[in-house]
Design a protein around this nucleic acid. Structure first.
Lengths: 203, 203
DNA sequence: TAATTTATTTAACACTGTTAAACGGTACAA
DNA sequence: TTGTACCGTTTAACAGTGTTAAATAAATTA
């Protein structure tokens, strides 16, 4: 009877090994590098054995995604527990969110659909800077008369531009990946965010 | 000699056809559905001739990406030209950016690395709502004492949450696809954005 | 020890991107 | 006209992918 337990324990262990091996491969070579045969190699089995533990490759990704959400939630709770004031708690939690994204980059990618393999492309393409240049100019125009005769520095413009871009691109990707909220909420977020940043420039 | 021109014109046309066929396939079945053989089917050729026009599949994606940036730039310029005041121009341009993302969803995805195939996963996973719930609670706590005895509505909380989330997730994904800036700028954007939204709550 | 169940692998299928070789036809020189 | 060089195109193949069914090895049970 005890042998049954031992076997079950072993099965649970190799299941865990599969997940660990997967994450290891992804961390070494990105999500494109993850294949069933490579996982099998890593755990010193052949590929079909994996299907005894996961119905398909997607089930592995799903399990890693779940682990990611649990880990993130743990970090958020820890951050919250370090403060008493809600304002301080919020600040700490979003900072923890930020840190998690880069500490567990691969998990964050699969959790929220951030594709990095396409980044090589736009890097060597001058056209990719066109949108930024166009908006950059208008931000400069908006800042200059206010601060006259002080000319805004690169950094000052940069911060404003990335604040704009982040909130809008963020809302877009959230909606594309997860179907965020209602259209009304989206436009409310958009409008108040944009006018808020503009106000922060014009005083 | 004119036949040379005709041939060159035909070559340019099939090159264009390849790009059109690719975009058509992607719009019908997503980026995963795009394969060299399907493109060949669409233009009524066999796969290897595509390599006469593009060195590899990546070159096709790159060309579509370039088209996307040009199209977006055109939209931004058009939006700008419709206003005179820089503040109004900025507002219109970011709205145009937003509209472009959904009008040319597939192009936006490849331009900025937005992965949608993973969205099926997190949908049926209760853990994916854990982070939101944790932060949601703190936002409620932050809003309640201010508006007392008025209890904040679902919508009011939602707007604040998504504003937070958008700017932070946006900044994260922008940095992951390697279009980000310096660490100092990042943290400046983060800190000012977070404290700005908190101030917009606490008055 | 023999039979049966379980664990694991081998082989295969249908895909993928990509390349080399073969084929068909056209253009041009002898 | 014939031969040859070229060009466009296809066929065949390779290595890789996820996945499944069948064959085999190992362990357990009778």
């Amino acid at each position: 009877m005890a042998s049954k337990d031992r076997i079950l324990r072993l099965k649970e262990e190799t299941r865990c090994n599969i997940l660990d091996a997967s994450l290891k491969i992804v961390k070494e070579g990105g999500w494109d590098a993850l294949s069933m045969r490579k996982i099998a190699d890593e755990i010193e089995y052949t590929a079909p054995i994996i299907y005894e533990y996961f119905s398909n490759k997607g089930a592995i990704l799903l399990e890693l995604t779940r682990k990611g959400f649990l880990l993130l939630a743990k970090d958020l709770e820890a951050a919250k527990s370090r403060h008493r004031l809600p304002a301080k708690q919020l600040e700490a939690m979003w900072l923890a969110y930020w840190n998690f994204a880069f500490a567990e980059k691969e998990l964050y990618q699969v959790m929220y659909g951030v594709e990095t393999s396409c980044c090589e492309m736009a890097k060597k393409m001058p056209e990719s800077e066109l949108p930024m240049d166009l908006i950059w100019d208008v931000i400069v125009e908006l800042m200059t008369p206010i601060m006259a005769p002080h000319v805004p520095t690169e950094d000052e413009i940069c911060i404003k531009y990335y604040t704009f871009w982040s909130v809008i691109h963020g809302l877009i990707s959230i909606n594309m990946v997860n179907r965020g909220t209602s259209d009304e909420t989206n436009h409310e977020v958009l409008k108040t965010a944009i006018s808020g940043i503009i106000r922060s420039i014009t005083g």
